[in-house]
Amino acid sequence: MNQAHPVLLRSDSCTQPPMHDHEVTTRRVCSRPCPCVQRHRYDLLKLRDHLAEGHQCADAWIALAHLVPELWQRLDCLERASAIDPDDQHVRIAYLEHYVALHPDDAQAAGELREAKARRVLERYKPRIFRHQDASQPIGVILRALCAISDADLEMALEEQERLRRLGRPILFGNLLVVRRKIAPEALARGLTLQSRIRAASGATPRTLSEYLIARGHVTPDQLERALLEQIRLHTSGKHEPLGEILLRHGAIDATVLQHAFQQQMHDAMTAFV
C-alpha cells in the first residue's frame, strides 16, 4: 500500500488542520513519552493546544486517536503519529488496521498489515544481536505475506521452535511448519525461493548456497524452487540430501559452479569475523 492515501481531517475535526511545508520545519519534536501528554492524555482541548503550539508530538496524535469519534479521524491521527515516529511498529500496525477497515478491498494494505504483525511476533523471539545485523525478510514474514500461514500458526511455530531449541533439538522454522502440517512443502519451497530472490535483489551478502546461486545467476528461480521442494520432501521422509547435490542431479549447475559457490560462502563467513 502506498502511504499517499491520507484521510485528511475535515474542518469540523477536533484536531488541527494540516501544516504547510514551511511551517513544519519550525515545529519542535517532542520526546517520548511526552510529559505534557502524560498529564493531559484524556483532555482533548489540551492535546489540541499542545499541537497548535507547534509541537511535533507522536504521543499527542496517538492520544487523540483514542478520543476522536470517527474512524477516518482516528486514521488521520495515527498517520500523523506514524509520520513523526516511523520506527514505532505499534503505531504503524494501528494505522494499517484502521486503513484496512476503511478500505477492505485494498489487498496491498492488507498484505502490509499481515507482514507488520508477523514482524512484531518475530521480534519477541529473534535474538537481539540479529535485529540490527539482518534487515532481510524472515521466512515467517514471507509465508505470512503469502497467506500460507496465519498469525496463530506463526506464533505457535515460533514458541515450539524456541522450546525445542532449549531442549537441544533445534529445527528450522519452515521444516517445523511442514512437520506440523501447517503448510505444504510446495509453499515452503516457494517462500524460500522468494526469500533468496529478495535478498539478492537488495544486494545483501548471500548467506546460503541458494542465495549465492540466485545472486550470481547460476540457477533460475524455477530451478531453485524445484530443488528445494525435493529437499523438503526428502527431509519429511527422514532423508537428507544437500541442496547442491540435488541441483547437480537435476543438471541445473555443474561441479565447478558448486565448488566456487562453496568457496565464496566460506570466504564470506570467515571475513565476517575479521
Rank of each mutant, 00 (worst) to 15 (best):
R207N: 04
P242R: 14
G244K: 11
L143Y: 02
L78T: 07
C77N: 10
L224S: 04
P33G: 08
D49I: 13
A255D: 05
D21L: 13
H40Q: 02
P185W: 09
G140M: 07
G238C: 10
L209S: 05
P206G: 03
G203T: 08
A145R: 14
T25A: 13
A272C: 00
H103K: 06
A52S: 14
T205A: 13
A135E: 03
A116P: 01
P242V: 11
E159R: 12
L8I: 10
A135N: 05
A118I: 04
G168N: 08
R10I: 10
A189C: 08
R197D: 04
E79H: 13
H5Q: 12
Q265P: 01
R74V: 07
R165Y: 05
K239G: 04
L75H: 08
D49P: 00
S150D: 13
A116N: 01
L192K: 13
L146C: 06
S150P: 06
Q56W: 11
Y95S: 07
A107M: 12
R226A: 15
A60C: 07
S196N: 10
N175K: 09
L9A: 09
Q3V: 09
R28E: 10
P127V: 06
T193H: 04
A145P: 00
A272Q: 08
A148M: 05
A107V: 12
P138F: 07
L51F: 02
T26M: 08
P35G: 02
T208V: 01
